[in-house]
Design a protein around this nucleic acid. Structure first.
Length: 460
RNA sequence: GUCCCUAUCGUCUAGCCUGGCCCAGGACACCGGCCUUUCACGCCGGCGACGGGGGUUCGAAUCCCCCUGGGGACGCCA
């Protein structure tokens, strides 16, 4: 996996990383992380950190690296010299302005925008600013069999002499990946299919340098809902943004892998399942549209089925970050269990959990007007009595207590529950009353009910 | 513009290689119903696609050709 540290790790990059990881794990290969930071202008340490964090969050552990291309310039320079000495590369003195003008002119006349090879035959080698270009063979065609797309071919005369070393001496991407992939023994290059045209340019370089040509697997791109390249205008695209929005990494992994890959009708896969089941054969060949709803559904699924203790830990972090004191409230796992079926994200769960840790300061107006009226004092009072007498403060115990309240008052639960709910949580929405009471505990429940009673008494 | 790739429900896809089991299956979303102490969950049902045109064949989503659509690349970015 070789991301470039010029931004965050986005959805597309993460999926490529995942596919690479899965294949390496499945086939017992080595998963190498290499940071492609030959663009000094745009590469930043912050981006490197974000990439590392995202890989870690997704659970994609690497066996080697991270390697930094910026630390391997000696190697690349040696290889450039080798090509120069063999006559397979040459100095080009054309300036960026000249090149731009030529491209412009070519565009106008409907021709190719390729470099015209002006400096290819140049015999003098003045000591002036120059780049180094690779002398791409002009005859025949470049062919390879892509592990995903099958036979691929391009006529060589469509290829021009690409720059492998800039005026400032820095090597360029297309050259260093060839050197690195070969030197690092990469046997399969899997990357987005926006690179297929680079592959045609890279293969001759492997050959020129005497390297074996690796296998290639070009994964289709991920597009936005308008079928355009995924970008910020389609909403969050960075992986870590989803962590912040309360998504679970297993949901992200599951979503990502199904975007472009399938295994019959199955939808749910853990990383472990995937290491066993993943295969290049089941990757589709066409671009896919990023669908946030399905990702959300998967997140919902993993929240629903997740281990309460683990989810509790994650929830506590979020709550703490929101300034909620979770140290004195009920046990997190118990809280989670009451919310798992009704939250799609951890953020949503946190919202739903706040009342457990802070008694209502006020009551929702419309809910109170309906369910917390003076005539409800008796119900609350009777409920208090039965809950006081209850020794087993569990879901079932609480249910029995309310059974008694129903008998004593002759009311159906529909006439009791909503009132208790508003008194306990302050609003009209919460998990099942029995669960809320059981999790809140006897002391806290009674305190909140008495408070409500006092408020009602003060009113009349 | 040139080149490369690609084409099944709105979206992700199964099926295509090894034609008939497909008047096309699953999932998300959407719509309806049931359940229900709120909100949800859940359950049941529904809507919905082989881009078009030519071939080949007894028979094509599946094979061939053309068209069209979509994406990508064309940088001293990666």
């Amino acid at each position: 996996m070789a991301p470039s540290p010029t931004g965050t790790l986005h959805i597309g990059g993460a999926r490529t990383a995942l596919f690479n990881y899965l294949l390496a794990r499945k086939e017992g290969g080595t998963f190498v992380l290499r940071i492609e930071d030959t663009d000094v202008e745009r590469s930043t340490q912050e981006s490197v950190d974000v990439i590392l964090q995202a890989m870690d969050w997704l659970g994609l552990s690497y066996d080697e690296g991270p390697y930094y291309q910026s630390e391997r310039y000696d190697l690349y320079r040696g290889k450039v010299k080798e090509l120069l000495d063999k006559g397979l590369a040459y100095r080009c003195y054309c300036t960026p302005e000249e090149l731009e003008a030529k491209r412009e002119a070519a565009m106008q006349s409907g021709g190719k925008r390729s470099y015209d090879g002006t400096c290819r035959q140049r015999t003098d080698q003045p000591d002036a600013p120059h780049v180094i270009r690779f002398k791409t063979p002009q005859a025949g065609s470049v062919d390879f069999v892509d592990r995903i797309k099958g036979r691929m071919s391009k006529d060589s005369d469509e290829l021009d002499d690409l720059i492998i070393q800039r005026t400032d001496g820095h090597p360029t991407y297309n050259f260093v990946v060839v050197v690195d992939d070969a030197e690092m023994g990469i046997s399969l290059v899997m990357r987005g299919d926006d690179h297929v045209n680079n592959t045609y340019r890279q293969i001759p370089m492997y050959q020129a340098l005497g390297y074996p040509v690796p296998e290639f697997a070009h994964v289709p791109m991920i597009l936005g809902s308008d079928k355009k390249r995924l970008s910020k205008r389609h909403g969050a695209t960075s992986v870590m943004a989803y962590k912040d929005m309360g998504y679970l990494p297993e949901a992200m992994v599951n979503y990502l892998v199904r975007l472009g890959w399938s295994y019959g009708d199955e939808e749910i896969f853990s990383l472990e399942d995937l290491i066993e089941k993943f295969s290049l054969d089941n990757i589709g060949r066409s671009a896919g549209v990023f669908n946030p709803e399905k990702l959300l559904w998967l997140n919902e699924h993993y929240i629903k089925t997740g281990d309460p203790a683990r989810l509790g830990g994650l929830l506590a972090e979020i709550l703490a970050g929101q300034g909620v004191d979770v140290s004195s409230g009920p046990e997190m796992a118990a809280v989670v269990k009451t919310l798992q079926d009704r939250a799609k994200t951890l953020i949503e769960m946190a919202e739903g959990a706040r009342f457990y840790f802070a008694a209502p300061q006020s009551y929702d107006e419309t809910a109170a007007a309906k369910f917390l009226t003076a005539d409800k004092r008796e119900v609350i009072d009777i409920s208090i009595r039965h809950l006081e007498a209850l020794s087993s403060f569990t879901h079932d115990g609480v249910e029995q207590a309310f059974q008694s309240v129903m008998e004593e008052t002759g009311l159906k639960f529909g006439k009791i529950g909503p009132t208790i709910r508003v008194a306990l949580v302050g609003g009209p929405v919460s998990p099942s009353i029995y669960d809320v009471v059981a999790v809140l505990g006897q002391e806290e429940t009674l305190a909140r009910l008495r408070k409500a009673l006092a408020v009602l008494t003060g009113k009349s």
